[in-house]
């Protein structure tokens, strides 16, 4: 038990970073790769980030559920390539629109931050 606690204390940053951007990451992954089940999404993010982002189920699934509740993704049970049942998530039209605006916001924020970090001339 004490382990859980100290872990939470030492690495709060991971979940906090994800809080705002998780939606964006999931939507982008689904756009790029088409319908995916939860584990595939997590594996993809882990791979892209070079292992820096490892999504706990307790973070990923509430996030997916939130997206589903807002109508940004759709979920259905399907059979995988390896003939196993899994719940596949795909992006909806309004999810695509949301991704575009979020992306634009994100890029604007990045360029602002970038300009801010530039040494003054």
């Amino acid at each position: 038990m004490s382990n859980t606690k100290s872990q939470q204390r030492n690495q709060p940053s991971k979940t906090e970073i994800l809080q705002g951007t998780l939606d964006l990451m999931v939507l982008q992954t689904l756009t790029a790769m088409g319908p995916q089940h939860g584990y595939a999404i997590a594996a993809r993010l882990e791979q892209v980030s070079g292992g820096a982002i490892r999504l706990n189920m307790g973070t990923l699934y509430p996030g997916l559920m939130r997206l589903e509740q807002r109508g940004l993704v759709r979920a259905e049970w399907r059979v995988t390539d390896t003939s196993r049942r899994a719940r596949f998530y795909s992006i909806t039209a309004s999810g695509r629109r949301r991704l575009e605006t979020e992306k634009a916001d994100w890029e604007r924020m990045v360029s602002i931050m970038h300009a801010l970090f530039q040494p003054q001339e």
Binding site: Y39, A42, A43, A86, R87
Partner: peptide
């Protein structure tokens, strides 16, 4: 429904991580 989805998640993970225990350590 949710519980099944989570169990599937761990199954997929176990295949990659090698064991169920490792999967649980990784994904909770």
């Amino acid at each position: 429904d949710m519980e099944e989805e989570l169990r599937r998640h761990l199954e997929f993970a176990a295949e990659h991580e090698g064991s169920e225990r490792a999967a649980r350590v990784a994904y909770g």
